[in-house]
Amino acid sequence: MSGDASNTGRRTDNRRSALRLAAVALAMFGFGWALIPLYDVICEITGLDGRTGVAQAASLPTQFDADRTVTVQFVANVNSALSWDFAPAVISMQVHPGKLYDTHYLARNRTAAAIVGRAVPNVAPNVAARYFNKTECFCFSEQSLAAGEQREMPVRFVVSRDLPPEVKVLTLSYTFYRAPENG
């Protein structure tokens, strides 16, 4: 074979292969970022991270399961960077799956300045999260408390009738964080 022609050919081949592999590497870089929304989607489907669902009141079933009772516990956490007091009105409720319930939390700003907080909801056990739906919650938006203000923060929720039968206790927990200054 004639050296130069085949060398040039091979050099082009090498360059083409290298570019293809570089494209694969770039695609994998993109995949790394894509894992974030992908993970959120998986969490939404499986409740993997214990984040709760949101339901429209209109779409809720009108019938409920009168024979079954589950305990819903309410837990409150405040991040230490936020000088608020925060507690549930009741520590637990007995609920029927499929029925709509109301309760509230209490929050008070201990400081002499208005502060904006943001509540992150979480349900344990994680598998039950997707069966815990809220139609109204203070965690849907940021909450502002004036200096020394105390306020009731309502939650309206329904536990789905599809809740796996082995789950007898659900814990709804909120962690209040200080919202970033610029909103």
Partner: peptide
Amino acid sequence: AGTLAQATAQ
């Protein structure tokens, strides 16, 4: 439960 006194122990 239902009041806020207990949560002040930061």
